[in-house]
Amino acid sequence: MAADQVVSRTVVINAPPERVFEVLANPYEHANFDGSGSVRGQLHGPRRLELGAKFGMRMRILLPYRIENEVVEFEPDRLIAWRHTGHHRWRYRLEPTGDGTRVTETFDWGTARSPKALELLGYPKRNARSIEQTLARLKKLVEERTG
Rank of each mutant, 00 (worst) to 15 (best):
E18T: 04
G41T: 02
T97D: 00
E105N: 13
R40Q: 14
R89I: 07
N26F: 02
E119F: 00
R9W: 08
F21D: 08
H30K: 06
G41E: 04
I67W: 15
L94K: 10
S8N: 07
V142T: 03
S114Q: 15
G100S: 09
G37E: 01
I61C: 03
L51V: 12
D4Q: 02
V23L: 05
G56H: 05
V72G: 04
E105L: 15
T101A: 11
R78T: 15
V39Y: 02
S36E: 07
P76R: 14
M57P: 11
E73V: 08
Y28V: 00
R102V: 03
N69Q: 06
E75Y: 12
L79W: 08
S36K: 15
R89Q: 15
L62W: 05
M59F: 09
G122A: 11
R83V: 04
A112I: 03
D77C: 10
N127E: 12
R66G: 01
F55E: 06
L24H: 10
A81P: 10
D4I: 00
M57Y: 05
V103P: 06
T134H: 13
L63M: 01
E50I: 11
T146M: 05
L62K: 07
P16M: 01
E68R: 03
R60S: 10
V72S: 10
A3Q: 10
T10E: 15
M1Q: 13
R91I: 13
E144L: 05
L51G: 13
E75S: 07
E132K: 07
P46Y: 08
E132A: 14
T146L: 04
D34F: 06
E70Y: 00
A15F: 00
Y92I: 09
P46C: 12
A2M: 14
F21H: 01
M57S: 08
K140R: 15
Y123P: 12
G45A: 02
W82N: 02
N127D: 13
G52Y: 05
L24Q: 03
I131E: 15
P115H: 08
V6L: 11
P124E: 00
F55N: 06
A3G: 06
K116Q: 08
F74T: 12
G56N: 00
V12F: 00
R145M: 09
S36W: 12
A136C: 02
E68G: 11
E144Y: 14
V6W: 08
V103G: 06
N26P: 00
T134Y: 06
G122P: 13
T134S: 15
E95M: 08
D77S: 07
H30D: 11
